[in-house]
């Protein structure tokens, strides 16, 4: 099929990524469907996320990418009317079981939202409040974690003298990095990111993007993005969603190089070539 559409292929040289070690599945999703009321948001998704890799979720708006993310930390159950069917395995843990300890799951599977959403508290409290909730009661230890997390996201030098300032006085990019710091302070294994750069200006967006790229191997990252160039720059794997019969479905997924250079599906080729979407 790709032979028919050669002219759509991006001609830029690809930054070749090492296939981050031996791929080992961290999340396995089988036949996952989500309904809001009687309407499907997405249908029959089958996807594997490899440990320590960055997987980018691309596709047009409204095909259930955000909802898909929210299934992986079971945040979807907070949305009224949502019902999920299928199988999600996180390591060996079956997440569809009602008895899954969600608090613990959400500590292990952090999430970053499209709009930076620090709590209306001080910078310090933004990081320490969740830590306290997860039983880290020693203030010295919390302080260490705070410094490490802020250093990891490159915010420490910028805010170390104003930890007691309201988090909402930070710039958008700083707020988003604070949110990432807040999530990684809990030492998660997986980070779900819902278009983390889309509400930021180009410079902040670049900073956050570099940060995400630097998280490779430390965390398994699933990132939704509308920015194909970004997906190409940072992702090891790409999964392409498209609307079919009014519901999202996974058209194609695979290593970034393959998706961009030799897409197997016509829609993928059209989308990444900028013809559709």
């Amino acid at each position: 099929m790709n032979k028919e559409l050669p002219e759509f292929y991006p001609s830029l040289p690809l930054k070749i990524r090492p296939d981050c070690c031996e791929p080992s599945p961290h999340f396995q999703i089988e036949n996952l469907s989500l309904k809001y009321g009687s309407k499907f948001a997405f249908r029959n998704i089958k996807l594997t996320l490899n440990r320590g890799c960055i997987t980018a979720l691309v596709g047009p708006s409204g095909c259930g990418k955000t909802s898909f993310l929210m299934c992986l930390n079971r945040l979807i159950e907070l949305i009224p009317g949502a019902s999920v069917t299928g199988e999600i395995f996180f390591d060996t843990q079956d997440l569809m079981k009602a008895k899954t300890p969600v608090i613990e799951l959400r500590r292990k599977v952090g999430m970053i939202f499209q709009k930076p959403n620090p709590f209306p508290q001080t910078i310090r409290k933004n990081i320490e409040f969740p830590l306290k909730e997860h039983g880290i009661l020693d203030p010295i230890k919390r302080r260490e974690i705070l410094e490490r997390a802020l250093t990891d996201v490159g915010l420490w030098q910028e805010v170390k003298d104003r930890l007691e300032a309201p988090a909402l006085t930070l710039s958008g990019g700083q707020q988003q990095r604070l949110c990432i710091a807040r999530a990684i302070a809990l030492e998660p294994e997986v980070l779900l990111m819902d278009e983390p750069c889309s509400s930021l200006d180009p410079i902040s967006s670049g900073v956050v993007e570099d940060l995400i790229a630097s998280l490779r191997q430390r965390f398994t990252v699933l990132i939704v993005t509308h920015n194909l160039a970004q997906a190409r720059r940072i992702a090891d794997y790409v999964a392409f969603f498209w609307l079919e019969d009014g519901a999202g479905s996974l058209i194609e997924s695979g290593p970034t190089k393959q998706i961009f250079n030799e897409p197997r599906h016509k829609l993928t080729a059209a989308y990444i070539g900028g013809l559709r979407g």
């Binding site: 930390n73 945040l75 907070l78 969600v102 608090i103 613990e104 799951l105 959400r106 500590r107 952090g110 999430m111 939202f113 709009k115 959403n117 709590f119 209306p120 409040f129 969740p130 909730e133 997860h134 949110c179 807040r182 999530a183 809990l186």
Partner: peptide, 25 residues
């Protein structure tokens, strides 16, 4: 609604979200 969502996404329990975020807001 983001307060509630982001709080839950960090694994904070409902009662603590209420007490520390929703009620103060």
């Amino acid at each position: 609604p983001e307060y509630s969502l982001s709080g839950s996404a960090l694994g904070i329990s409902r009662s603590q979200i209420l007490l520390h975020l929703l009620l103060p807001a």
